[in-house]
Nucleic acid binder design. Structure first.
Length: 916
DNA sequence: CATGTGCCTG
DNA sequence: CAGGCACATG
């Protein structure tokens, strides 16, 4: 019928069977359409999930992930997409950037003024989006219709839509059926969405969308001076460098007045008398602090307003506000962003230069702050987790304590926190710098001169005053410094305390209000809101799928999926901390087994390159595991929001678009109930919404992984960086050694300039592939290639890699079937009662197989997938379907839809090394 | 024909 | 895991 499946199953099937008989094989699926799984999945689910999302706005925005594919069935008219795309591309190509830039500018401004919050939120998304735009074209060829990124737009659309009519979101799109249903649903999936058909109304929405896009891109570019390097660095670069520049310039100019003093100081340092400088600085700082504070308040206010408006607002989006406001906002928000890709600004050296002392203090402060917040707003904490890891100079150990995973983070709050945090950090950095500067000036003027100018440029933003107290503190400090000399630790500490208090206080208020708002909003949104967070999770996946969908046109449009009430609702997943056991170990054992693996392969046709990882025999492993897995306290929180780089299209589309990643700080993770070992039964009463856990980035045990990830994945870095103080940001950049201004290179180097060096897949690659299996069960070869940038692919090794995954799947399904049967034999009646605990046998086996050395924490989604798979098998077996020849086929299909994007850090050249 | 996928077997 | 085969799709 609608799906290809049907096609084969019917007519062809008979033939097939006949043939099969020859071999006596019951081919469940031999020859399934290549990507049939993914395709189907994509189409069907995406819409549903999208719908699920509450209004999309919140989820989309808050989640910060990029959901490209998400077109509600009803929206995202092809035209719109085309328009957008066309615009984007063309402009880029033509060099119309200027126009775009201008527009973007305006939009940006508007947005900033009217809705800071949105901006913030969207900025994340934007990043992703922008990235997409940048790279995709090539890979995307698949979809003739629209070669370019279909991606980002949809999100925007949704967001816009939601904004316009919050309540409608579900209306237009098909009702969002619970994911589980989709899964189960035989297949009547409707998928017309990508066929453009429906969308043909160029409404204000489009305009808005366009605007938003521009804004976003602008924002994005600005904040992330780091070039938008897309791993594949496809063709396009950011197109707003100019805008950015313009903005920066503007910004600089306008600021100059305010910041003037400071800048002058820095520049003229040498000549000016220290005292004068001090005074000037002091004043400047004071005013800046104040400004900052005000901004915070302002932002909050705006946020609130925004929240209120969200429902109705359709036009508000654009308001041209005073440039001044914009500037302020800019300052506060993208603080480090000033550096535009354009490169007019010199690379930021500023913060980096700061002595360790400062950083330490900052760290301290941050930590304290976090704790305080955590106490006050437990649910918010998660947001920080994501961010923390990102701080380069912070010692991983101290700062990374993930807050309790269970805490549900309010996304809105999180966003705010991030912003606040950023501001805070920035401010701190500035203050410190200033202090330091003074010190230096007094002692050695030349030094200060050197970096101050740059500072200025980079962060022209005046430092707003935090509070009078703070200002006083600073002043005192300064005075002391001036007269006494070096700043004492005590002083700094005091300052830190003050700052902490200040910020904490303001943040607390802010957060509270935000949370309240958010909650309220959700309520308003209605049912969708129900599981905004949960929905968000799904959304991600859906989006991904949708994206895929877009790439390939669906053979036959399928009718929209309908909810099948109650059909197979699965209980909320009890995953959670359960993971603990698995994650815990960080130690990565070094087992250099590679010895011979690298031997050159002689091109003899059938030679097998065995890459098998022999290092540990399964038995050994099991033994070890049996002995108990130790987990480090820190790793207990699987959900730690370490942002997970999100790749838009997991499988089908080979788009090396690193941008996706949205860090998702919010983990709408629902509370986890630890299930006992093995298959546990959950109380029937369990809330029924089944929301797949968000695809969170698993927490890597080694900070190095993260770091490496950063190196390799600019996007990833960017995203995180965005949330941190510019200082951090900059320092990171420096660490990376990347030129912030450099755009994506025209070269298509996979990543970071990593070039394929060998065509031989080593045991390490195998290991990596296994780890990847946690995210993707059905990766396309294109995706695989993307994730193995160091491999020079040819047919053989590509096939080998593909084969690996085939083998992985085989193993996986065998286990699933086995455990499903076991559950049945144990008398389990309801599939919903099947749960996979972190300590279950099944889980252990799987972990052993794919993650022997616990190199990474198993992503929560994998657990979800496992559970779903298990349930599918369970149901099938229970229903006697296993008697049918291809009974597994349907299961495979379901599972194939559950692929998630593989974290960007897998592309990192360093990743392999980490796996030793 | 190239690719992709599954099933079996070694 | 890898080989091979059968089968599917573009």
């Amino acid at each position: 019928m609608s799906s290809e499946e049907e096609a084969d199953s019917h007519a062809p099937y008979s033939d097939k069977l006949l043939r099969k008989q020859k071999r006596a094989r019951q081919r469940v699926d031999a020859g399934e359409p290549r990507n049939s799984y993914s395709t189907l999945a994509t189409n069907g689910i995406a819409p549903a999930r999208a719908a699920l999302m509450s209004g999309g706005l919140y989820s989309a925005i808050f989640e910060g992930r990029q959901h490209f594919g998400l077109f509600g069935p009803g929206y995202a008219p092809a035209e719109m997409l085309n328009e957008l795309l066309g615009r984007t591309t063309k402009q880029d190509d033509n060099g119309d950037e200027a126009n775009g830039g201008v527009i973007a500018h305006r939009v940006l401004r508007d947005i900033l003024q009217s809705r800071n919050k949105e901006l913030l939120l969207s900025s994340d998304n934007n990043n992703v989006l922008a990235n997409n735009n940048n790279d995709e074209p090539k890979t995307e060829k698949r979809s003739p219709e629209r070669p370019c990124s279909h991606d980002s737009r949809p999100d925007l659309d949704n967001a816009l839509l939601s904004l316009e009519n919050p309540g409608n979101s579900h209306a237009s799109p098909p009702p969002a059926p619970p994911s589980s249903e989709n899964l189960i649903a035989p297949k009547p999936e409707p998928e017309d969405r990508d066929s453009d058909a429906q969308r043909s109304s160029p409404r204000p929405l489009d305009v808005k969308r366009a605007r938003v896009e521009n804004i976003v891109s602008t924002m994005r570019s600005s904040p992330a001076p780091q070039q938008p390097q897309v791993n594949g660095c496809k063709k396009r670069k950011l197109y707003h460098p100019q805008q950015h520049d313009g903005a920066a310039e503007r910004y600089g100019t306008s600021h100059s007045s305010s910041t003037h003093t400071v800048s002058d100081d820095s520049e003229d340092d040498g000549e000016r008398p220290p005292i004068q400088q001090k005074l000037v600085e002091k004043n400047a700082l004071k005013s800046q602090l104040r400004t900052l504070q005000e901004q915070l308040a302002e932002m909050h206010e705006k946020y609130v307003q925004l929240c209120n408006r969200v429902g109705k607002e359709s036009e508000t989006v654009d308001n041209d506000g005073a440039s001044s406001d914009v500037e302020q906002i800019e300052e506060s928000i993208p603080k480090s962003e000033p550096a535009s890709p354009a490169k007019e600004l010199p690379p930021p050296l500023t913060n980096t230069a700061t002595p360790k002392m400062f950083s330490q203090v900052m760290n301290q402060m941050m930590t304290a702050k976090m704790h305080a917040q955590a106490v006050g707003h437990p649910h918010l904490q998660p947001g920080f987790n994501g961010t923390l890891p990102m701080m380069p100079h912070l010692p991983p150990t101290d700062h990374m304590h993930p807050p309790h995973p269970q805490i549900h983070l309010n996304s809105a709050a999180a966003m705010y926190l991030n912003v606040s945090q950023k501001l805070f950090l920035e401010q701190e950095a500035r203050i410190k710098e200033a202090a330091e500067q003074q010190q230096n000036n007094q002692q050695i003027r030349p030094q200060s001169n050197q970096h101050s100018p740059q500072q200025r440029q980079l962060g022209p933003t005046p430092k707003p005053p935090l509070s009078s107290e703070l200002a006083e503190r600073l002043d005192a400090l300064r005075v002391n410094t001036g007269s006494v000399g070096p700043i004492s630790g005590a002083d700094l500490e005091g300052l830190a305390d003050v700052l902490k208090n200040e910020i904490t206080a303001s943040l607390a208020t802010l957060i509270d209000s935000i949370v309240t708002r958010f909650v309220h909003q959700r309520r308003v949104l209605g049912k969708q809101s129900e599981a905004a967070s949960a929905a968000a999770d799904k959304l991600n996946k859906d989006l991904m799928r949708a994206a895929r969908l877009i790439d390939r046109k669906s053979p036959t449009p399928k009718p929209p999926e309908r909810q099948m009430p109650g059909m197979f609702q699965t209980p909320p997943k009890p995953f959670g901390p359960l993971y603990g056991p698995m994650n815990g170990q960080f130690e990565r054992e070094l087992n250099p087994e590679q010895s011979e693996a690298i031997s050159l392969v002689v091109p003899s046709r059938k030679k097998r390159h065995k890459v098998t990882d022999t290092r540990i025999t399964p038995r050994t492993v099991s033994r070890i595991l049996g002995e108990g897995v130790r987990q480090s306290p820190e790793s207990k929180f699987p959900e730690s929001p370490s942002p997970r780089p999100y790749t838009g299209l997991p499988t089908a589309v080979a788009i090396p678009n690193p941008s996706l990643h949205e860090s998702q700080v919010f983990s709408p993770y629902s509370p986890f109930f630890g299930a006992g070992g093995g298959l546990a039964r959950s109380p029937p009463a369990a809330p029924e919404r089944e929301s797949p856990p968000l695809p969170h980035a698993p927490v890597l045990h080694h900070s190095e992984l993260l770091m490496s990830a950063h190196h390799s994945s600019p996007d990833y870095l960017r995203q995180h960086a965005r949330m941190h103080a510019s200082a951090l940001h900059q320092s990171q950049m420096m660490m990376d050694g990347q030129d912030p201004h450099s755009d994506c290179n025209s070269t298509d180097l996979p990543y970071d300039g990593v070039q394929p060096t060998s065509s031989t897949l080593t045991p390490m690659h195998l290991r990596k592939a296994k780890l990847m299996f946690f995210w993707v069960r059905y990766p396309s070869s294109a995706v695989l290639k993307m994730y193995f940038p160091d491999i020079k692919f040819n047919k053989n090794n590509t096939a080998q890699l593909v084969k690996w995954f085939s083998n992985f799947r085989e193993f996986y399904y065998i286990q699933m079937e086995k455990y499903a049967r076991q559950a049945i034999s144990e008398g389990l009646k309801a599939a919903e009662d099947l749960h996979v605990a972190g300590d279950s046998e099944l889980y252990r086996v799987l972990n052993l197989h794919y993650n022997r050395n616990n190199h990474i924490e198993v992503p929560s989604n994998f657990r979800y997938v496992v559970e779903q798979t298990l349930r599918e098998f369970f149901r099938a077996i229970q229903g006697g379907k296993d008697a049918e020849q291809s009974w597994k086929k349907s299961i495979y299909k379901v599972i194939s839809r559950l692929d998630d994007p593989v974290p960007e850090y897998f592309k990192s050249p360093n990743f392999l090394e980490q796996l030793e």
